[in-house]
Amino acid sequence: MGYYVIVEPNIKIYIEDLNPEGKKTILFIHGWPANHKLFEYQFDQLPQMGYRCIGVDIRGFGNSDKPWKGYSYNRLADDIRCIVETLRLQDFTLAGHSVGGAIAIRYMARHNGYGVSKLALFAAAAPSFTKVPGFPYGLNKEDVTKIIQDTYNDRPKMLQGFGDMFFFQYLTGPFSNWFFQLGLQAAGWSTAKLATSLRDENLFSDLGKICVPTLILHGVHDKVCPFPLAVAQKEGIKHSKLVPFENSGHGLFYEQRDKFNKELMKFIEE
């Protein structure tokens, strides 16, 4: 069931709510530059296992409205708060991939984890997506700036290049094209502005504010958010557990989807 939630005057966020009567709720926040359909291979299985799965299209992406402004971590975390309040969610698992993980972390810190009983981070872009003094991991800021420039100059070519570094395992041509189409559903300005937040924002001060049990799933071969980011998350978040995915890159939710789904379900049931 799909519908819209108003998060600001004249700005609506698209929600896909699968199995609303499910025993436990998982709210998924997708990564850049896709939309909630990124979790297709979770939505195929988890509702059958009795879970309520809510997929969110970040503003500017998928079926959500695409305003010119509002792509800071704070605003995107506030969008999630509006969704949680509108749906009256309680005792749910907040799950985020890549920049979705960064938004989830900011939500936990900014809104004191409102309604969240557990946090799941998948290849999260935290504590910093780019290399900064004292943190020599992540991408170079210059490389992210080039992605932003390429978004404005030739977005399809940029998306194709990003898709090539997203996965570790071999992909079929049709799957690569499907992934490419997810990125095209976003607005160009949204794609560029969220990439700017990825480049310029960080979450070092947010990690220590998380007090709920946290699962960290991360591909060892991740070229977008290198594995040392997951190690830093584990060190910075109390009550956290890190599970390496030995045969995955940034797309672990697809590349090792059976293990991914099992680890997530096991964590929720603990």
Rank of each mutant, 00 (worst) to 15 (best):
S128I: 02
M108S: 09
K118L: 04
P213E: 01
K209E: 09
L215D: 00
G161N: 13
A192M: 07
T172Q: 00
K141H: 05
D143V: 09
Q181G: 04
V116S: 02
L121G: 01
L207A: 11
I210P: 13
A124C: 14
A109Y: 06
N177E: 15
G208C: 06
L203T: 14
I210Y: 10
F179A: 15
Y170F: 01
A124S: 15
V144A: 10
V144M: 08
M165V: 15
L182I: 07
Y114V: 02
V132E: 10
N177G: 02
R106W: 06
G138H: 11
P127I: 10
I147K: 14
G161W: 03
K141F: 07
G134E: 02
S117C: 08
A192E: 06
R155F: 00
K131L: 05
T151E: 07
G138N: 09
I216H: 06
Y114N: 12
Q181H: 09
R155Y: 05
M158P: 06
S117E: 13
C211T: 10
P174A: 14
L207D: 08
G161M: 12
S128H: 07
A120Y: 03
G161K: 09
L119C: 05
I210W: 14
L198T: 05
L184F: 06
Q169K: 14
P136V: 04
I210F: 13
C211K: 12
F180T: 04
N112Y: 12
A186T: 11
A192N: 11
A195P: 07
R106T: 13
T172S: 14
A186Y: 08
K193E: 00
A120T: 10
L217N: 07
P133T: 14
T196H: 09
T191W: 08
W189E: 06
L184A: 11
F167T: 15
Y137K: 04
F129V: 01
A195Q: 12
I103C: 13
F168W: 09
I210R: 07
L203Y: 09
G208T: 08
F135T: 01
F135P: 00
P213L: 00
Q169P: 00
S197R: 03
L182A: 02
A102T: 14
E201F: 13
N112M: 10
Y170S: 13
E201D: 15
G163Y: 07
L203R: 08
I147R: 15
G161L: 14
F175Q: 03
G138S: 05
T214Q: 11
M158Y: 13
S190Y: 11
F175H: 00
P156A: 11
R199D: 02
R199Q: 10
D164P: 07
G138V: 12
V144W: 06
P133W: 14
S205L: 13
T196V: 08
A123G: 15
L198E: 12
K141N: 06
I216L: 11
V132K: 08
P174Y: 11
L139F: 08
D143E: 12
E142V: 12
L182H: 01
K193N: 01
T172W: 04
D143C: 03
R110C: 04
W178G: 00
L198Y: 09
T172P: 03
Q169C: 06
L184T: 08
S117Q: 12
T191E: 03
L119V: 02
H111C: 13
A125I: 06
R110G: 04
Y137S: 05
Y107L: 00
S128G: 02
F167R: 00
